[in-house]
Design a protein around this nucleic acid. Sequence first.
RNA 1: GCCCCCGUAGCUCAACUGGAUAGAGCAGCGCACUUCUAAUGCGCAGGUUGCAGGUUCGAGUCCUGCCGGGGGUACCA
Length: 621
Amino acid sequence: MRYCKQERSRREAIVSQICPARPICAEIFAADAHTGRYYAWPMADVTTQLKDVLSAALVAAYGDAYANADPMLGPANNPKFGDYQANLAMKLGKQLGKPPREVAQAVVDRVEMGELIEEVEIAGPGFINLHLSARALASAAHAMLGDDRLGVPALDEPQTVVVDYSSPNVAKEMHVGHLRSTVIGDAIARVLTFQGHNVIRQNHVGDWGTQFGMLIEHLLETGQAEQESLGDLTKLYKESKKRFDAEPDFAERAKQRVVALQGGDEATLAAWKKLVSQSETYFASIYQRMGVLLEPGDIRGESFYNDKLPGVVDRLKQDGKLETSQGAGVVFVEGFSDKDGDPLPMIVQKSDGGYLYATTDLAAIRYRVDELKASRIVYVTDARQSQHFAMAFRAAEDAGWFGHASLEHVPFGTVMGEDGKPFKTRDGDVVRLVDLIDEAESRAITVCKEKNPELTGEEADHVGRVVGLGSLKYADLSSDRVKDYKFSWDRMLALDGNTAPYLINAYVRVHGIFRKGEIDFAGFTSDHVQVQEPAEKALVLKLMQFGSTVDSVADSLEPHRMCNYLYELASAFHKFFESCPVLKSDVPLEIREGRLALCKLVALTLERGLGLLGIGVVERM
RNA sequence: GCCCCCGUAGCUCAACUGGAUAGAGCAGCGCACUUCUAAUGCGCAGGUUGCAGGUUCGAGUCCUGCCGGGGGUACCA
């Protein structure tokens, strides 16, 4: 958990001043009492206040040494255990050599209830169960409503974080294999940006390598290199590959062409640049359609590191890390072995003098640490590359190339078909990304029109685009990324369960209420938030978890945690919707206003949460 | 062979980084619509968390060994 500067100094002041315990909550609320409003300190969410109270109680009981101990506070996992639970007593009991329940009692005895806590009790081995006052909940909701960031403080000490994702290949069409890196990486970039980090997106495109020899040779021989547009790049790739495999003479010329390319031959380079530039235009169009943040300026392809590769090898040599094995320049990294149980080398220079992806990745690490000043670098790639990154990170670490920076591989599993085997077309071909998007949109339109026949024309198209793309992304994001997942149109477009349509529909329902009541959504605000009904209470408690969910996603780099949260939020909203009428004539005006506030808060949180996943919303569907 | 990842209800997935009685959706059965959009909600049923040990107040989660699936394992990325 991180706090803004203001918040942190406030916490420190409280903790240092309070021994023995003082009525901090009363103080906090008193500061606002004259305004007649419930919300407490600016930026101080109720969770933070609870932690303060527990910290203070802990210090009062056992002294200053425990001022920074984690109270282990979290939402209660069952309403009968209250609203929040603190699990510190069990851990502390061990440290202090006392029974956990005794520790819990000592803490509870010194908890200043104030207006925040209604009831506190000890249960089981030493759980501290906290029941919040209705007023505290109302205050929390009100504070969120008045804050653009929904109560999530911007970081006091932002880091420079490099997020490496998507990485398609020049002269090849993007396919299902690029889906996960692109979607997961984008969500991670968005979440870290929202937290306040300086996020530098890096698209490590495959724009260099031996395959360009055959492509360029074919282009030049057929005269296509002269043309304004190169046309269908997939066709080009297939044609040249076919020739490469079938014509030995062509294959030989293609190999020579690689040498010419590396040597900087003008005509060769011109053709290569044409390929790259056309591909980049194509990537940009896909990203735009997908609503992905990546731009041409984020591209640092393999070729970008070309002139840095000899330096990488030289540096390794200087550091005494480089060895020669079977004619290749290698680095032996501790802890890796090959089939025969011998140490596994990481090859940085081939026996013919060429460089490999390990060299490029090492060069990229240096660039990101030295030039981009990154303090955290995350790589969103296929889980199959785990060993490669483990070796590269270890080698760079051994060489002392990244002082305080942390490097993280963010692996993900494979997209499977319904049969449990890697997702392919019926013919066994790779599935093109554009085909996936097309089908997602058209299926979404069908599903939406079926439920709402009044949906027509441009609006139907728009809804189809948002819901279709959203469903495709959400399916990819909503399960634990390290596992493979089964691709299913029916499941991802289902209106029930943990799906994009279900979440977007919750958003739509809120707007439906505002439309029905002829209330301006954007302009609406209220001081009359009240939390009385169980469904209201459950909803507010869920809303309050948004901030910690963002932190959790940022720490773990697991976007599915946000999906789980949003699904629980939407479920809580639907229960509220069932049991708490808003616009009905017998609802008192104040209650109506308070419930409208909760509705708006739900919509804002859904929109923000989905937005952090790169998914949009619609007001009608 | 060695290393890494995965194994949870019939199916698809969760489980807040070790917390209380393992939760959802689908499929099955039964309820609630002159509606704030039933695109929903409620209930029933469904489990030896692959197996066996271990660590501790407490294990789906951590450790060890098996079983099963996937991936990696020297000049592709």
